[in-house]
Amino acid sequence: MEKTIHDTYRELFTNWQQSGLSKASFCHREGISKASFYYWSKKFATDLPASNSPVGFSRIEVADPVLPTPVARITYPSGISVELFGPLDPDRIKALLV
């Protein structure tokens, strides 16, 4: 039986999840269209069962005392925000954004 495009992209999606690569890097490595892969990834991601554990950012505790209110906030178009407390180190901020 011949593989359907659905089966092909499902396999690619699974391989991407296990690769640890960004979607763009994975597409480049596999020689596939980013637009198509993003389209199929979105379809497959909505098929996944909801997880009880939060996905995304984790709280990082620092040893030095910090200010009680953020001195900077980075808000992305997706609505995710990163708040920075205490003295700002440009190299640390750059590392967060890359």
Results as ranks from 00 to 15, higher is better:
R29Q: 15
D64G: 03
I93G: 08
P77A: 14
K43D: 00
V82I: 15
L21F: 01
A50G: 04
E83Q: 13
H6V: 08
F44N: 02
A24K: 05
T4N: 15
P90Y: 06
K42W: 00
Q18Y: 07
K3V: 04
E2V: 03
H6C: 05
A95F: 04
I93N: 04
T46C: 09
P49S: 06
P68T: 06
F26M: 06
E83D: 10
I80G: 01
G86R: 11
I60D: 03
Q17F: 01
P77W: 10
K94A: 14
L96P: 00
P70C: 14
E11P: 02
D7S: 14
P70L: 08
E30Q: 15
Q18T: 04
S81Q: 11
D47R: 12
D47Q: 13
D64S: 11
A35K: 08
R10Q: 11
T69I: 08
K94W: 12
T75A: 14
T69P: 04
I32F: 03
R59L: 03
D91Q: 15
G31S: 11
S81G: 14
S19M: 11
R10Y: 10
P54W: 00
S33F: 02
F44P: 03
F13L: 03
K43E: 06
R10I: 06
I80V: 13
D7R: 10
V66I: 07
G31D: 04
K42H: 05
L12Q: 02
A35N: 11
K43W: 01
E11V: 07
L48K: 12
W16Q: 09
D64W: 02
I32M: 05
Y38N: 03
E61H: 05
R92P: 07
F37V: 04
E11I: 09
P70W: 08
S41Y: 07
R10N: 11
T8W: 06
S78I: 04
F13R: 00
W40R: 07
V71R: 14
K3H: 12
T46W: 05
Y9V: 08
Y39R: 14
A50R: 08
G20N: 11
P90C: 08
V66M: 09
Y76R: 14
G20T: 14
Y39L: 02
T46S: 12
S51N: 10
F37S: 10
R29N: 12
V82S: 07
Y9D: 00
A45K: 15
V62E: 09
L67K: 07
P70A: 14
K34S: 01
K23V: 10
L88G: 03
G31E: 05
I32C: 04
S58G: 09
P65Q: 00
A35Y: 05
V66C: 02
F37T: 01
F13V: 02
F13Y: 15
S58R: 15
P65G: 02
Y39W: 06
S81F: 07
V98I: 07
